[in-house]
Design a protein around this nucleic acid. Structure first.
Lengths: 335, 335
DNA sequence: ATGAAAGCGCTAACAT
DNA sequence: ATGTTAGCGCTTTCAT
């Protein structure tokens, strides 16, 4: 009785309920213009058959997939994981699913994932850029797929961005270290082409300049090129650095690891402030002083804006949402 | 010239290239039976038009979505995040996308996500169960959607499972603590209905029983019900516990947090072993002794098995893959 | 309030 | 080697 494909289709439902296809469709879409009795009957047949609408078919016709994509560089980074979780929760509430892809920080992979998403007719995209220079969101833009970029304002494109006050936060963190009397402060960053890295670096430089000091920077292109040996050159004479400011979670991990290898005590031998808080940062003695990003809020806000665009596209220009960070003083800065 | 919908369709490609729809389709699907010249011409038109195949339409017709779903309880858990990343990488290589949903450990949400995935015609599912009692994968099973369950063998269902040797690992960890001379060892777990928790608990009980000791257990239904006060009742007289064995990452976080509040030094005041390793576990003094799960491998293996089922379904019974854990001794156990 | 028919963009028999 | 013709399961004018 049921279509040979295995599961019941709307045609089956209609036939068994003794109504037309359109009526069955109306029930699915909660159309108001329906006699309650008819609707009830159809609904009953639906549950009876265990009917599940085929979203692919629905999307093909309606030209919407009810899916948004999220592309991130690295899920192992807790900042990213939490943002993804927040986005997915908002999406669920809106009746959307999230297609997730990780780029590994590779612009080429990112672009190919972008294409894949386009083919899947995603209704929107939240991007945590791998590499600002190589991000190619033009095709999406041309197809009028709403995009929200997290953590990076894409220059010259009319996309919504949501970021934190990177520069200000970095400047304040650096100032805090300067306040402790440290003069030789090292900034450690990765992927300097990323906006977040660049901006945090700018904040650091501003603070150093204001204090009449030279910036000391250790920037690596990718994680593997950072080793304890590299760091040790900055810690040895002459003029060893007195404090380190790590520009994101990955760098914090790398530096902590290296300091352990080099037997340098945090705060005791060298002060440390980390951009990015994380679970247990307070448990690493003497507690890591950090700049905390409102991670969940970033994710939620990005999703919120995206769905606003998806649902109705008011042509007000691209949005720039800037959230504030929180400076959390624990012991590693020397306090 | 191009269909009014905005982007070029295969019909447009065919028309402009002066071939039939089917020929264009053949080019898309890399059919071998094509004159190279024709294929080249069609391909040229495709790039010229910036043609992107519509995966929704493709899937509707071909009855495959080229998407797999992954449902997890908590992305903030690094174990989960890394497994998801591993799965996604394998999926990408296979030309599939991953639809990710988090259940928050709520069986009801999990089930509704399961339904959503069904409607999306997913070709396979990797499940990190929220709650073994409530998981309802029957509908997927009936629709012949391959499923791989991570971290939990679903009883009585013919699904593939991939787990670690929970009981053995827990037993050995407990024995290790016993070897240090601790008698009063507390096991801390969450969601005791979960297979992982139950099995680890079993391992712990076995070891305690072998030593002629009573098991001491603190099991919470959910994270928020665990507080420092609750833990403190186990640490106070009479007979304070001498060591703690946490049954997963979340519990480790909760216990570490509580111990800090209670001003108890790890190893010094109380020994600790954690089931689940994590970034910086070695940095929490004196270094956390842990049972490490091969997280990436779990994810990769789960995906590998899933795609085997998707590509060809040999009717050999359900697989049970059991991976080994690694016992990593650092200082917290008292060593 | 309900139905008939067309078609979204693609694949797949079945020709030729 | 290439084209013709049906649909996949749904939504959607346009009738009634």
């Amino acid at each position: 009785m049921i279509s040979r494909t295995g599961s019941a289709t709307l045609v089956d439902v209609a036939r068994i309920a003794g109504v037309s296809l359109k009526t069955a469709s109306r029930v699915l879409n909660h159309s108001p213009e329906l006699r309650p009795a008819t609707a009830a009957r159809v609904r009953e047949v639906m549950t009876q058959l265990g009917y599940q609408p085929n979203e692919l078919a629905r999307g093909l016709k309606a030209k919407r997939s009810a899916a948004i994509a999220m592309i991130v560089p690295n899920l192992a980074d807790p900042f990213t994981a939490i943002a993804v979780q927040a986005v997915q929760e908002v999406a669920r509430d809106k009746g959307y699913v999230v297609i997730l892809a990780s780029s590994g920080g590779d612009g080429t992979i990112e672009n190919s994932e972008l294409q894949v998403m386009l083919r899947r007719q995603i209704d929107g995209l939240i991007l945590l850029a791998a590499n600002s220079r190589k991000s190619n969101i033009k095709p999406l833009f041309e197809k009028n797929v709403p995009i929200v970029v997290l953590d990076e304002p894409i220059r010259g494109e009319k996309v919504d961005c949501i970021i934190v006050s990177n520069r200000k936060a970095a400047r304040e963190a650096t100032k805090h270290l300067l306040g402790h009397g440290y003069r030789r402060i090292l900034a450690v960053g990765a992927r300097p082409e990323l906006f977040t890295c660049a901006e945090r670096l700018n904040g650091y430089r501003l603070a150093m300049k204001s204090a009449g000091l030279d910036a000391i920077e250790l920037l690596v292109e990718n994680e593997s090129s950072f080793t304890a040996e590299v760091l040790s050159t900055f810690l040895s004479d002459p003029n060893p650095v007195e404090a380190i400011f790590t520009l994101n979670w990955v760098c914090t991990m790398l530096v902590l690891r290296a300091l352990k290898v080099l037997h340098k005590g945090i705060a005791k031998d060298i002060a440390l402030i980390s951009f990015d808080d994380f679970e247990l940062a307070d448990m690493i003695p003497p507690g890591l002083t950090v700049v905390r990003q409102p991670t969940r809020e970033l994710g939620r806000e990005a999703a919120r804006i995206l769905f606003e665009r998806i649902e109705k596209k008011p042509n007000d220009g691209p949005r720039r949402v800037i959230l504030d960070t929180e400076f959390i003083i624990r012991g590693s800065c020397g306090c």
